[in-house]
Every structure is written in structure tokens, then in C-alpha cells.
Design a protein around this nucleic acid. Structure first.
Lengths: 140, 140
DNA sequence: CCGGATCCCCTCAGATACTG
DNA sequence: CAGTATCTGAGGGGATCCGG
């Protein structure tokens, strides 16, 4: 029962193809939902931090900078629920909990790299486009 | 003055490298903001629809299914502002407006393909992880 | 045909305080 | 140390109406 992605071709050529597969019900969770899940303010940072090996709750809290306890917990739970993070509890006193990225998350990391790469190569271009756009619209 | 991405290497190897570049101020707009911009409910669908050639406002409205006039307009404006869409107005009666993806958006499309591909290959796995997680937590 | 303006809801992030 | 509970405000997004 460990099939899971037998019906999905190894490499899609267009997003329209993807949409077709989604419409056929091949894909239990549409990519949009995945995008939402990782597009929040914290998930990517957390995945990055957990990709280098096990990391503890408090370490994450210090590493992520600006994250609240609440959001850290919530985001960790969501990522764990999706099978992207593994949570290990050591029943010691004081308690110790470690998080690490699963293989699936590491693959996601690669995909994110593509997107980040695009962002960085074009961010100056986007910034310029914005300035120009704003000049056109406020000047009017 | 059409440099824009001279300081960014062609291909990043890790997201930590990317973060370092961001911290150096090389990247005027951090990738996170880009993620936010495209992660909304509609942007990706719109980019897909505009990637096959010019498409009119009303066509988009019919194609996207479920989108409100307001959100279509808003999302189009944001994408246009970021230089991802080109808007052409034909001063006819009745008015005619066409949108098409810019080359930059077509490259983004490729990056999204990577991410979508990941989503589809793992969605069954994620779905299973969720079920299992929910069983563990509600059973408790 | 294309879109701006307004109202309203509802989710979700932040702050703060408390517990095993 | 690693969380939970509760309140609160900002903003995404739908519905509707109006205008060029």
C-alpha cells in the first residue's frame, strides 16, 4: 500500500496537464493547498532550519527570529501533520523535543530552491516594474 | 541599466546561501514576499490562463470559475504591477482589454511546474500522513 | 465590457499569561 | 523546556452597487 504516486507522471510539462490530472481526481490534495501550506510567513524558514539535522524547539525559536511561541508550535504541528517534519519526544526532565525534515521535505526544499532562484534573479526587475507602475498610477 | 540580476549566481545550491545573499541586501525583494504574492487563491490560475497568449477580462472571468470580479481585478493589478502581466487596452466601443504573461512570468511558470510536480507526486503521501496524524490525535 | 467603491465576514497572526 | 489558552486587530476575499 505504499504506492501513492503511481498514477502521476514523473515530470509534467504544463500546469494545464497538472490541472487535468487534478480534475480526474488523481491528486487527493491540489497543489494550491500545498502552496498555501508552505507560503505562510514561517514554514519555509522552519523547513530550512530542520533540514540540517535534528533541532530542538528552543533552538528553532532562537533561530527563526521574530517568530512567536504560538506560531512556531502551530506551524510545526501543520508540517508534522503533512509528514514534512518528524517530531521526537525524549521523556526526560526537563522535556526535550527534536524536529527534523523528512525525505519528502528535503525534496520540497529542492523545488523551493528553483522558486527562490527565480525570485532572486528577477527581484530587481520586479522592483523596477513596481516603481514604474507606481509612478504611472500616482502621477495620474 | 538593464542589469538587475548581475550579483545573483545562476544557480543557488542551498536556501541558506539564498538567505545570505538576502541578508547582504543583494535582493531588493525577498523570496518570501514573492511566495506570498503568488500563493493567494488566484494568481497561479491567472498566470496559467495568461500563458497561452492574450486573453480578455471576461474570458478570464469565465475561465477561472468561482472568482469574483473584484478579486480578478485586484489580482490582475498586482501581477501587472510586478511586471508579470502585460495589459493592453484597445480604445474601442465597447472597451477591450487583453492580458498576457511576460517572459518573466513564463519563467516563473517553469518554477511553479517544479513545485506542482512535487505536490502531485507526494499528495497521496501527504494525505496518508494527515489521516494517520488525525487518527493519533483524535484517538488520544 | 471593464472595473472602481463600499460593506461585511471570517480567518489567522501577534501579544500576553499560564502549565506539565 | 516545551508547550496551551485567550483576547485582539489586520487583512484577504465575497456580495453588491455604481460608472465610463
Amino acid at each position: 500500500m505504499s504506492q501513492g504516486h503511481t498514477a502521476v507522471p514523473a515530470q509534467l510539462r504544463t500546469l494545464a496537464d497538472a490541472q487535468a490530472l487534478i480534475d480526474q481526481g488523481v491528486c487527493p490534495i491540489p497543489p494550491r493547498e500545498i502552496l498555501d501550506r508552505i507560503a505562510g510567513k514561517w514554514p519555509v524558514q522552519i523547513i530550512v532550519a530542520c533540514s540540517q539535522g535534528p533541532i530542538r524547539f528552543t533552538e528553532l525559536e532562537r533561530t527563526i527570529d521574530g517568530i512567536s511561541r504560538r506560531m512556531l508550535t502551530l506551524t510545526l504541528r501543520n508540517l508534522e501533520r503533512d509528514g514534512l517534519l518528524e517530531r521526537t519526544v525524549y521523556p526526560t526532565v526537563p522535556p526535550k523535543v527534536e524536529y527534523r525534515a523528512t525525505p519528502m521535505a528535503l525534496e520540497l526544499y529542492e523545488a523551493l530552491l528553483t522558486l527562490t532562484n527565480w525570485s532572486m534573479r528577477h527581484s530587481a526587475c520586479i522592483a523596477r516594474a513596481r516603481e514604474e507602475y507606481d509612478r504611472r498610477t500616482t502621477g495620474n
